[in-house]
C-alpha cells in the first residue's frame, strides 16, 4: 500500500489532529506512516493542512505530492493547497464552504453543517471528516481508527466524537456509489 492524503482547512478545525489520528492508526495497523503539516502563524483561522503518507515501505519525502485523498473544508485551503490527484484519487470538499469550480468528480459532503446540526457550534469537524474519508476509501482498519480517535480526542468528548466518526462513515459510504457532483463547466 502507498497512499497520500492531504487534509486542508483552517486553524481550529482540528485537521492536524485528524492527520495524527490517521497516521497513528496506520502505525497501530502495522504500516509506516508520516504526518507533516503546513500552517500559518494563527492559532485559529488561516489556511492549514496536514499531510499523511501511509506505506508499507520506508517513506522518504514526507509531504504529499499526488493525493489519493484531498479533503478541503474551506475555500481558502482548497485554493491554496489543491494539487494533483493520483489516478483514482478522491477529492472531498465541504459542500457548503467550498466551490470546486471546474473540478469534476468532487465529492461534496455537508460535513460542517452536519457537525453543527448534530453536535453544536463548538464541535470541530475533524473526526467526522475522518469518518467520511473512511466511508469512501478505507485506509486502515476501522477498529484501529476508532481506538485512536478515543485516545486522541479530549476525554469528555469521546462519545460525541465516536458518534461523529460513525455518522461520517455512513455519509461517506452513501457517496461512494453516487454520481459525481455536477460540473460547473456549463456555467462558464
Amino acid at each position: 500500500m502507498y497512499k497520500e492524503i492531504r487534509l486542508a482547512g483552517s486553524g481550529g478545525q482540528g485537521l492536524i489532529t485528524a492527520g495524527v489520528i490517521l497516521a497513528e492508526a496506520a502505525i497501530a495497523g502495522g504500516h509506516e506512516a508520516v504526518q507533516t503539516q503546513s500552517y500559518g502563524p494563527e492559532a485559529r483561522g488561516g489556511a492549514s493542512r496536514a499531510d499523511v503518507i501511509i506505506s508499507d515501505e520506508a517513506i522518504l519525502y514526507p509531504k504529499a505530492r499526488k493525493f489519493d485523498i484531498f479533503l478541503a473544508l474551506t475555500q481558502e485551503a482548497y485554493d491554496k493547497f489543491r494539487g494533483d490527484l493520483a489516478p483514482g484519487g478522491l477529492l472531498i470538499i465541504d459542500s457548503d464552504l467550498v466551490d470546486p469550480a471546474g473540478d469534476r468528480g468532487a465529492k461534496a459532503v455537508p460535513i460542517t453543517a452536519a457537525v453543527k446540526k448534530n453536535f453544536g457550534e463548538r464541535m470541530p469537524p475533524n473526526v467526522m471528516a475522518l469518518g467520511v474519508i473512511h466511508g469512501m476509501m478505507p485506509l486502515v482498519a476501522e477498529r484501529k481508527l476508532l481506538d485512536t480517535v478515543k485516545n486522541r480526542v479530549p476525554q469528555k468528548s469521546v462519545d460525541k466524537n465516536v458518534k461523529a466518526f460513525k455518522m461520517g462513515i455512513k455519509m461517506g459510504k452513501a457517496f461512494v456509489d453516487q454520481p459525481a457532483a455536477p460540473s460547473n463547466d456549463a456555467d462558464l
Binding site: 495524527v20 497516521a23 497513528e24 502505525i27 509506516e32 506512516a33 508520516v34 504526518q35 507533516t36 503539516q37 517513506i59 514526507p62
Partner: peptide, 9 residues
C-alpha cells in the same frame, strides 16, 4: 521545522 514537526514511527 520539517523534522521538528513531522510525526512518524
Amino acid at each position: 521545522e520539517v523534522v521538528g514537526h513531522m510525526r512518524e514511527k
